[in-house]
């Protein structure tokens, strides 16, 4: 459902061109996990931003198979989308989990989870989205604000939000980077289970080797 073919990204830096990504290629099927692994500064976040439509690649192609209706799928050529089209693609077909600042501090847990549904006009899926809070063991926190949650709880809310609108793809950037080992393992389990359960693809950027080894595909990046 995701094809990344020869993707390159560069930027000007003080009159010189700096190559951030060069010829990155991999494929991912629905329900599978790809781990983008590499040291700091190797371009993991940039690759996620390119796949998520936040940045346009310098070269290469990114295709995502999405389902607009049962039994009807189509490919989106992300690399060729305009800025407005990338915004719609990101809003409807991608879910995000970050290391920091995952949640809007002025919204409750429930409101954070319902936000993607409102943005996509999918209010009828609210029950299913909130049901995921139950599955993640945080249903009793629904009316709390993020600043009243622990780091692990916040990441679980972020997972629920990332999957609320049933996206084709979930992009997670170091989702366990600021958690202790126990919490990191629990959050990773939740992420894996929920993504597989939703039938989405997961692209995970991490420099955690153990986490990367759990993935179906590992994309190695060098500095």
């Amino acid at each position: 459902m995701l094809q990344v073919e020869g993707v390159a990204f560069q930027r000007a830096d003080g009159g010189q061109v700096r190559h951030i990504l060069q010829d990155v290629s991999f494929r991912l099927a629905s329900g599978q996990v790809a781990a983008v692994w590499g040291p700091s500064g190797s371009g993991k976040t940039t690759l996620l931003n390119v796949i998520g439509g936040l940045l346009r690649p310098y070269a290469g192609a990114i295709r995502v198979a999405v389902s607009d209706a049962p039994d009807r799928t189509r490919d989106i050529a992300v690399h060729a989308l305009s800025s407005a089209e990338r915004l719609r693609y990101r809003r409807r077909h991608v879910g995000f989990v970050f290391q920091f600042l995952n949640l809007l501090p002025t919204l409750t847990v429930e409101e954070n989870v319902l936000l993607p549904l409102e943005l996509n006009g999918l209010g009828d899926r609210a029950d299913a989205a909130l049901g995921r809070l139950e599955a993640l063991g945080i249903a009793d926190l629904a009316q709390r604000f993020p600043d009243a949650l622990s780091g692990g709880e916040q990441q679980r809310v972020a997972i629920a939000r990332a999957l609320a609108h049933a996206p084709a793809l979930v992009l997670a950037d170091e989702p366990t980077g600021n958690l202790d080992a126990d919490n990191a393992a629990r959050v990773a389990d939740c992420l894996w289970d929920q993504v597989r359960d939703a039938g989405a693809g997961l692209v995970l950027a991490t420099h955690n080797e153990r986490l990367a080894q759990r993935a179906d595909t590992v994309v190695g990046l060098r500095q």
Binding site: L87, L101, L103, N120
Partner: peptide
Amino acid sequence: RGENRLLYTLGVG
């Protein structure tokens, strides 16, 4: 800026 960036990532133009 961080909050706005999050909204933008989630698809708010």
